[in-house]
Each structure stands twice: as C-alpha cells, then as structure tokens.
C-alpha cells in the first residue's frame, strides 16, 4: 500500500471517527448523569437528517439556515423524549428505564417509516462540501476536512461549556451525586434536560454531516451508528467526554483500516465494533479514560 493510499484511508478514518465521536458524546453525557443507555440516541441522529432534508426540500431554505433549524428541532425532540420516556421513571428499576428507552427508539424508527416512508431519500450535498481538492496526488472531498474541523470546534465549545459555565458545573455535580447536587440547590431536572439538549444537538450536527458524507437517508440509518457510538463511548470509558472522543476516533480509524488492509473481511466490518466492545469489557471494563467505580452495598 502506497503512502498516498494510506493517507487517503487515514483521512477517511479520521472523518468517520469524528462523526462517531460527536454521537458518542451524547451517549456518554447521558450515561454520566442518568446511568442509562439512551437507546433512542441513534434515532435522534436519524431524525435530524430528516429535519434537514425537509427544511431544504419542502421549505426551500438555504442549506445553512436549514441545518440550524434541524439542529434546533432535534434539540427539542431530544428533550421531549427525556420528558416523556425517562423522567416518569426516575425512581424505577434500571431495567424499566432501559426498556422504555428501547421502546422510544422503536417508536421513532417506526414513526419515521410511517411518516417519511421506508424508501431511502437522496440527501442534497451543497457544492461547498462536495468539491474535490488534490493533496499530495490524492483527490479528497473537501467535506473530509470540514468534518474533523467542525468536530474540533464543537469539542472546544463543549469543553468550555462544561468546565467554565454554571450549567456545566451543575452537570458535573449531578453526574457525581444526584441527591447531594439537588440538596445544593441544583435543579436536577433542568440539568438533565440541558444534557439531553446538548447531546441531541451534537447528534444532529453528526447526523447532518453523516448525511452529507453518505448522502442517502432512511429510517433505520441511525441503528448501526447508534450502537457503534455507544460502543465507542464504552471503549473510551463511559461517562468521560474525552474518552468518548478518543473511542470515536479509535473505532472510526480501526473500521476503515480493517477494510483497507483486509478487504476479504469487509463483510465483518459491522461486527468489529462488537468484538472490540467485548474485548474491552473483559480486559478493561472502565475503558481507556474511565474512572474506577466502586459498588455501593
């Protein structure tokens, strides 16, 4: 394999990894606060692409405005799901919340099938993203560079939000201990809502960029990325945002490299994430960045 080809695979891996990272953050933030796998996260990601699609095609918005509208709608959707499906079960056994999450995920998938139709729709890619640049003899889509760039900008914003603002401090407090946080005067429900909002916004950005990269959207498109990004979050250490980013990049690059180096194993690409998950859970259950959690008796 020549250096140029390797470089091309690497850029592909990095851009796929950034998408995984964006979605994985949503999982890790929700898990950090509620100790819950938000099964519906992958479907929130899918809905974002449909919002953007309809904003462009039905309402003829400029792509930039359409993307903003789509992100806002997705945030509302994410918060709405939390209010409807998770909030009533705050004190319920964990299994019930998990089942509710699975129910919410299936509801979104099937509602999307009913309302939008199951036939894949072509997603419009504005030419700004589609143009090619030639770099060291390799033709690369401009989007391939935009995706990691946008991801990094968002990550810096997120780091600021979590470490420097009051809401961020509230989030950190709630994820450490819900009861103590509420005794300190933190509005736990509001904090959880904000967490879902931020997670959904990142999923929306990830979703739109995903649709630009793989321009075909359909109601089940969120299932596999959703599962993989949860796995990325676990690999990085669930609950840790840095971990989710590392896990996302790791998984994305590994996937592209597997197909690049072993083309015969391409069919097993979707299984790779799960195999990695099991290996990680067996040997380092807390992931790369996770803190060791002791069990309370």
């Amino acid at each position: 394999m020549g250096l140029a080809t390797f470089f091309q695979h690497l850029t592909n891996g990095v851009s796929l990894g950034s998408l995984y990272a964006l979605i994985a953050i949503g999982y890790t933030m929700v898990y950090g606060i509620l100790r819950l796998i938000n099964f519906a996260h992958g479907d929130i990601f899918m809905m974002a692409t449909y919002f953007a699609f309809f904003a462009i095609f039905i309402f003829h918005m400029h792509w930039f405005i359409a993307f903003i509208v789509a992100i806002l709608l997705t945030v509302l959707l994410g918060m709405g799901i939390e209010k409807a499906a998770y909030k009533p079960l705050r004190d319920a056994p964990k299994i019930s919340v998990l089942i509710s999450a699975i129910g919410a995920s299936f509801l979104l998938e099937n509602l999307a099938t009913v309302v939008f139709g199951g036939i894949p729709k072509p997603f419009p890619t504005p030419s700004v993203f589609n143009d090619m640049v030639i770099l060291g003899g390799v033709r690369v889509q401009k989007l391939t560079f935009y995706i990691p760039a946008v991801t990094i900008i968002l990550l810096i914003g997120l780091a600021y939000l979590i470490n420097k603002t009051k809401s961020g401090m509230a989030m950190r407090a709630v994820s450490k201990d819900v009861e103590t946080a509420s005794l300190m005067g933190i509005d736990v429900n509001r904090t959880i809502s904000i967490t879902f909002g931020i997670g959904s916004a990142l999923a929306a950005v990830g979703g739109i960029m995903w649709a630009l990269k793989f321009p075909q959207i359909q109601p089940l498109m969120g299932v596999m990325p959703g599962l993989k990004c949860f796995i990325a979050a676990v690999i990085g250490g669930i609950g840790s945002i840095t971990g989710a980013v590392i896990g996302g990049f790791f998984l994305g690059i590994m996937e592209i490299m597997l197909v690049a180096f072993f083309p015969t194993l391409a069919g097993y690409r979707d299984a790779l994430a799960f195999i990695l998950l099991i290996v990680i859970l067996l040997f380092k259950p807390t992931g790369f960045m996770g803190e060791k959690m002791s069990e309370k008796v």
């Binding site: 796998i37 599962l227 949860f230 069919g267 979707d270 299984a271 799960f274 099991i278």
Partner: peptide
C-alpha cells in the same frame, strides 16, 4: 462465559452485540 461478568445495561449491549455478530457471521 465472558458476558455474564457484566451487569445491567453492559450485559444488555454485550448480548445484543453477540446476536449481531452471529447474524453477521451467518450472512458471510
């Protein structure tokens, strides 16, 4: 043998993963 060391939602996602691996193997 490996999965039952996990608890709660980790077990759920690991078993879901195994089912998916079985399906991928059957497809291939």
């Amino acid at each position: 043998a490996p999965a039952l060391r996990l608890k709660g939602d980790y077990l759920a996602i690991a078993t879901l993963g195994f089912a998916e691996i079985i399906r991928v193997i059957i497809t291939n």
